[in-house]
Nucleic acid binder design. Structure first.
Lengths: 345, 345
DNA sequence: ACAAGTTGTGCAAACGTTTTAACAATGACA
DNA sequence: TGTCATTGTTAAAACGTTTGCACAACTTGT
C-alpha cells in the first residue's frame, strides 16, 4: 500500500540497504547517492515504518507513564496533567513517544504495565507517586525493566527516581509559620501509606522539635487527598479545647476543604488561623484568600523524570548507575499566612 | 533473548503456525494441542511481540491524543486530564493503548501527529477542542486517516466527532438566569476563534432574543480561558453606567477570576450578581460561593470519543459512516445563582 | 469400498526494516 | 606492477509474527 524502502531503492536504482544507510547517515555513502535517494524519498513521500524498525532494533522509542488509580481522587488531576506535560515535552525532545496507561485498581495497574512491557511495546516506564509497597515497582524491578519513580520507594532506595525533598519542604513550611510567631501548629496529612504523606509529616515534626514546640497527636489528622478530608479535619480540630493557630496542609485541594470548613465555622484566614499548603497548584493562587504553598516544580519533576529514564535506557549497562534527582522546591507566601497568631501583622 | 513463538513451537513439538493459531483461537486446532501449547507458553513465560504482530497485521492497536498547546492555558489541565482518563479507560477496554502527543505550537502539533501517522505508529487519533481551522484536521482529513474530534469543526461538518451541544447548554444556562428574574445578563466568553466560545455565545444570544431581552455588545467580553480574563472582564463590566445583574461565564476557571474581581470591588454573589458557569470542573464545587455550572460530562466525552474512533477503525470501509455524538449536559445549580436580581430569594 | 467432505497441521512467503559480511572499484604506496 | 587500504555498494539473513495453500488423516454417506 504505502511506499517502502524497496520502492525507493528500485526507483533510485540502488539497493534497499543503501537507502537504509542514507536514512541513518551512514558515513560510507557518497554524497551524490545520498542526495539522489533523499530526493526520491521526498518525491515519493516515503516515511519509514516504525514498527518494522522496532522489530529489528528491539527498541521502540517510547516510554509509558502509569497513572495511579483515578476514582475519587480526581483532585490529583491537576498534578498529573502538569507532570505528564513535562514528561511528554522532554520525551518529544529526545524523540520518544509517550503512552499513558492506567488501571481501575492495583492489580489492573500491574496488568496494564505487564502488557506493555511483555509486548516490548515500550522501552521504559515512568511511575507516579508510589505507595509504600508498590506492586508495579516489584514487577518492573524483578523484570529488570528500566523505570523511573516520581517519588520515592521506602523499600527500594537504590532505584532511579526523581523527587521532591518532602521532609525539607515541610520543614521549610513549618519554619515559616514558626518564624511568624506560631507556637501551636497542626498538620493535615494524606493517606498514611503514601511516602509523600510520611515525609511531610516528618519534616513538620522535625521543625517543631527543633523549635522546642509540642508535637501533639491530636493536632495531626490523616486523611486522603480530597477536599472533604480537609473539611472533616477542620471539624475535628476546631472542636478541640486547645486549638492550633497555624496549619500545614498536605495539598492545595485539601486546603480548599479546610478553608471551606473554617469559613463555615466563622473563622478568618489568616487572622484566626494561618495556613501553608503544598504543591502550589493553580488553585492556590485562585483561592480566596490565596494560599501560601510550597511549589515543588511539577512540570520540572516530569521533565527530569523523562530525561533521567531516557538517559538510562540509552546508556550501556555498565554506564548505568541509579541516581536520585531532587527537584528544588520554593515556598510561595500568599495571604493565607501573612500574619502572626491573633491576627497581628 | 526473550522467548519467541518458535521456541514454544520447538518445545511443544509443533510448528510455529500452530502456536500462532492457538494464540488466535483458530477453530481448527485440536483441544489437545491447544492445551499443551498453552501450558508450554505459560511455563516458558511466552508473550507475543506486539511489534512483530503490528508489522504483519498493519495494525497497532493504539490511538493517539493530540494535546493542544500547553503554555499559559494550564487551567485547561483539569479538563484535559478528565478527558484523557475517559479515553484511556475506554481504549483499555477495547484493548487499545493511548499515546499522548503535543507540540509547543500549531506547526509542531502537526509535526508530532505526522510522525505518528506516517510512521504507522497509531491506528487513529483523538483531537481535542479545535479552533476554527485546525491544521491537524486538514492534515488528517487529507491523509484519510481515522480521527475523531472532541468538539466541532466549522469547516468540516461531516467528520467523526463527539461534542457538547454548546448552543443548547448556553441557552439552558441563560434560561435559568432569566427564570430567576434577571433581565440584564452579560457574557464572559473565551477566545473568539474557538468553536466552543462561538457556540456558547450563540446560545446566550438566542435565549435573550427569545425572551425579548437586549443583547448588548458592551455586556459581552471576549477573552481567554484564563482567570485573569475573568478578572479583567469584571473591571470593565462593573464600571459601566448600566450593569448586568446576571452573568454567563464560559469556564469555571474564568469564573474564579470573575469572583475574585467582584470580591475586590465589594460585590456579593449571588446577591449583587448571579453567575452561571460552564464545564463543572472540580473547582466549581470548591469555590466559595460554589458555582452553578453546566456539567458537560467530560469523562463521558472522552470515553465516547475513544469508542467512536475505535469502532470506526475496526469497521470495514463500507460500514464507516461519519457520526456526530452529542453528550448530554446538565445544569448544576449552586449558590452562585440562587437569588433573583437585587438579592431577593 | 470409494468419493467427498472435514479436521488438524505444516511449509513458506510476507510484513519493512537493519546489519554483517563480502565484494568491486579506486587510489596510495613501495 | 603488485599489494594494501579505503570507499561505496549489495546480497542475504535476521527480527517475530500471520496466513494462504497444500496435504494427510479421519469421518461420512452411499
Amino acid at each position: 500500500m504505502s511506499v517502502t524502502i524497496k520502492d525507493v531503492a528500485r526507483r533510485a536504482g540502488v539497493s534497499p540497504s543503501t537507502v537504509s544507510r542514507v536514512l541513518s547517515n551512514h558515513p560510507r555513502i557518497s554524497a551524490a547517492t545520498a542526495r539522489k535517494v533523499r530526493e526520491i524519498m521526498e518525491e515519493m513521500g516515503y516515511h519509514p515504518n516504525l514498527m518494522a524498525k522496532s522489530l529489528v532494533s528491539k527498541t521502540t522509542k517510547s516510554i509509558c507513564v502509569i497513572l495511579p488509580k483515578p476514582a475519587e481522587e480526581l483532585f490529583l488531576n491537576l498534578f498529573f496533567m502538569e507532570l505528564i506535560r513535562g514528561i511528554v515535552a522532554q520525551a518529544a525532545r529526545s524523540g520518544y513517544d509517550v503512552l499513558i496507561s492506567s488501571g481501575a485498581n492495583e492489580s489492573e495497574e500491574v496488568e496494564a504495565v505487564a502488557r506493555l512491557v511483555n509486548g516490548r511495546r515500550v522501552d521504559g516506564a515512568v511511575l507516579l507517586y508510589s505507595r509504600k509497597d508498590d506492586p508495579v515497582v516489584e514487577f518492573l524491578q524483578e523484570r529488570k525493566f528500566p523505570f523511573v519513580l516520581v517519588g520515592r520507594s521506602e523499600r527500594h532506595p537504590d532505584i532511579l527516581s526523581v523527587d521532591t525533598d518532602n521532609v525539607q519542604a515541610a520543614y521549610d513550611a513549618a519554619r515559616h509559620l514558626i518564624s511568624l510567631g506560631h507556637e501551636r501548629i497542626g498538620f493535615v496529612g494524606g493517606p498514611p501509606n503514601m511516602v509523600v504523606s510520611i515525609d511531610r509529616m516528618e519534616g513538620y515534626r522535625r521543625a517543631l522539635e527543633e523549635a522546642g514546640l509540642p508535637f501533639r497527636r491530636d493536632w495531626v489528622v490523616e486523611g486522603e487527598f480530597l477536599q472533604d478530608s480537609g473539611y472533616r479535619a477542620m471539624s475535628l480540630l476546631m472542636n478541640l479545647p486547645e486549638r492550633p493557630s497555624g496549619m500545614l496542609v498536605v495539598d492545595d485541594f485539601v486546603t480548599f476543604g479546610v478553608i471551606r470548613g473554617l469559613n463555615e465555622l466563622g473563622y478568618k484566614i489568616p487572622g484566626d488561623l494561618s495556613i501553608v499548603s503544598f504543591n502550589n497548584l493553580a488553585l492556590a493562587e485562585l483561592s480566596s484568600p490565596p494560599i501560601s504553598s510550597v511549589d515543588i516544580g511539577i512540570y520540572h519533576l516530569g521533565y527530569t523524570a523523562s530525561q533521567t529514564l531516557i538517559r538510562w535506557i540509552e546508556a550501556s549497562p555498565e554506564e548505568r548507575t541509579p541516581v536520585r534527582h531532587i527537584i528544588p522546591h520554593r515556598l510561595i507566601v500568599r495571604e493565607s499566612s501573612l500574619y502572626a497568631p491573633g491576627g497581628k501583622a
